[in-house]
């Protein structure tokens, strides 16, 4: 390898993206070329120091504006889909016949709609899309690195259907594994709506029972105990008794566990 061939490979070398064969060739060249060796070390230090430049963060307005824009765009799409039918009505040759036909169709449709209680297909589709968007936002935010973003994700979970198992699973993961106490605490509260849905109530209840032995922060332990007492969840009784008899446990948590056991009887 010549110096000219080695130079464009330096950035790959610093980024550890050279292939095995190239790496060998490059190292062999460095071993025999003092000038390239010095350049790799000097410019490499500058390349690495770029990592230290502070990262700019966008303001919260960016997200707000994006979701407003997305909502407006989708509304526009929905109304654009209904427009061809309206134009058809305005054609003079069809106006009289269309008026009569529409009256008949309208009466018929009204009768049918009242009979089966189903919303129009477009409305159902729009609802599904909104639900899907809310689910996506909640799930994406809960995976963010920043605790405040994950907290926002937990708040978004209140806007999904309580039968949404994907969001429930994400909340359960948050309750069990999130390193931030405030996020875990918010996620415990966010599980409540899921205990009211036939599709998810069992999974949500079990998640609360299983989270209690793993939890170490007193404030979250108390929240879990309150939740279990509210649910009158008898499967939690052994863990509550363990907490009552554990001398190392926080006194506030112990008292709350005693109270919960009494309430369950």
């Amino acid at each position: 390898m010549t110096c000219e061939q080695a130079k464009p490979r330096m950035t790959d070398y610093w980024s550890l993206t050279l292939g095995e064969a190239e790496q060998k060739e490059f190292s062999a060249h460095l071993a025999s070329c003092e000038a390239c060796r010095s350049e790799v070390s000097r410019v490499g230090a500058l390349w690495q120091s770029l990592d230290l430049l502070p990262l700019e963060e966008p303001s919260g307005k960016v997200r707000e504006r994006f979701y407003e824009m997305l909502g407006a765009y989708r509304q526009g799409l929905a109304s654009a889909e209904t427009q061809p039918a309206k134009r058809w009505w305005t054609m003079p040759a069809w106006q009289m016949a269309a008026a009569a036909a529409l009256l008949a169709v309208g009466l018929g449709a009204g009768y049918v709609a009242r009979g089966n209680g189903q919303p129009p297909a477009e409305v159902s589709q729009l609802r599904e899309e909104v639900a899907s968007m809310r689910q996506l936002v909640a799930l994406s935010l809960m995976q963010q690195q920043s605790a405040s973003e994950r907290l926002k994700g937990v708040s978004w979970s209140y806007q999904v259907e309580p039968s949404d198992t994907e969001v429930l699973n994400a909340l359960v993961t948050t309750v069990n594994h999130d390193p931030n106490v405030n996020v875990r605490l918010a996620a415990v509260d966010a599980l409540r709506p899921f205990t009211g849905s036939p599709a998810t109530h069992l999974a949500a209840r079990n998640a609360v029972v299983q989270a209690l032995p793993k939890e170490t922060a007193p404030i979250v332990q108390v929240a879990l105990i309150d939740f279990l007492a509210e649910l009158k969840e008898r499967n939690a009784a052994p863990e509550l008794r363990r907490l009552v008899s554990d001398p190392d446990i926080d006194s506030g948590v112990r008292k709350r566990a005693e109270w919960a056991l009494e309430r369950m009887q």
Binding site: R63, L70, E129
Partner: peptide, 14 residues
């Protein structure tokens, strides 16, 4: 499925 753009926004806007 334009709502899926939310996922791309969360991944790439920063």
């Amino acid at each position: 499925q334009v709502a899926r753009l939310a996922l791309l926004f969360e991944r790439h806007h920063r």
